[in-house]
């Protein structure tokens, strides 16, 4: 009899506890949302050229390497044009252009392809060059991998069509019959200062068979563009 009474009391207490607990419902009391805040810092990396070696130049190594040129920067994978020098620059006889150069739209450090087009030469590309914003970036077109010492890579000679006075008239980046005709038309012409006649590829004092041989060797060659 007493045990039955205790059971009833227990049931009542349990029921009361569940009634209480059942009323203690709650829902989330906070709402959260995220968003991003972004900004961009620009720091155009600067480059210099050291060195370029125009093909077939007469004279001791690195003494007759002056050339008109301009640089173009593209993305390494998609080869999307980013920026270019808007003017023709001139290297020294040693093949250097030690003037700090930056490009529009190349405003942060990274990996780029950097192209050089010469006055008488096909375009040459340096692949996957890391342009550092903190330091001056040296471009060495005499090495395949842009390493530091002077190498053996040359700019192929013979692209001499168009006026050759601006970045947009520096040839069509292919050596063909047009270039051959131009050179043949100047054959035997003197060039006393060695670098005023564009057809004088080896920059001696005359346009002759040596220049013709250079061009014929490269006939049908195309630039890295």
């Amino acid at each position: 009899m007493r045990r039955g009474k205790i059971k009833i009391e227990a049931i009542i207490i349990i029921a009361a506890l569940f009634l209480i607990s059942g009323s203690l419902s709650y829902i989330a009391l906070a709402s959260t949302a995220n968003f991003t805040v972004g900004l961009r810092v620009v720091w155009p990396p600067a480059v210099m050229v050291q060195w370029i070696a125009p093909e077939g130049r007469v004279g001791p190594h690195g003494t007759n390497w002056d050339d008109y040129f301009f640089l173009t920067v593209k993305t390494p994978d998609s080869e999307t044009f980013l920026g270019a020098m808007p003017y023709l620059a001139t290297t020294t006889n040693a093949g250097t252009y030690l003037v700090t150069t930056t490009f529009n739209n190349v405003d942060e450090e990274g990996v780029y392809d950097v192209y050089l087009k010469g006055w008488q030469h096909l375009t040459r590309k340096l692949d996957n060059v890391f342009l550092d914003e903190y330091s001056l970036n040296i471009l060495n077109y005499t090495q395949e991998d842009n390493s530091s010492p002077t190498g053996t890579v040359v700019l192929l000679a013979g692209d001499i069509n168009d006026l050759g006075t601006t970045t947009s008239t520096l040839g069509d980046d292919v050596i063909n019959s047009v270039d051959l005709s131009l050179l043949l038309s100047r054959i035997d012409d003197d060039d006393p200062t060695t670098n005023l006649v564009r057809e004088n590829l080896n920059q001696d004092i005359v346009v002759n068979s040596v220049d013709l041989s250079l061009l014929l060797k490269n006939l049908d060659a195309e630039g890295d563009n």
């Binding site: 949302a33 620009v42 942060e108 903190y134």
Partner: peptide, 18 residues
């Protein structure tokens, strides 16, 4: 100051509490 170039980002969280 010399600030490295590139895209910077902050992720902001807003929380409203009853």
């Amino acid at each position: 100051n010399m600030q490295s170039s590139g895209a910077y980002q902050a992720v902001i969280t807003m929380t409203a509490v009853a």
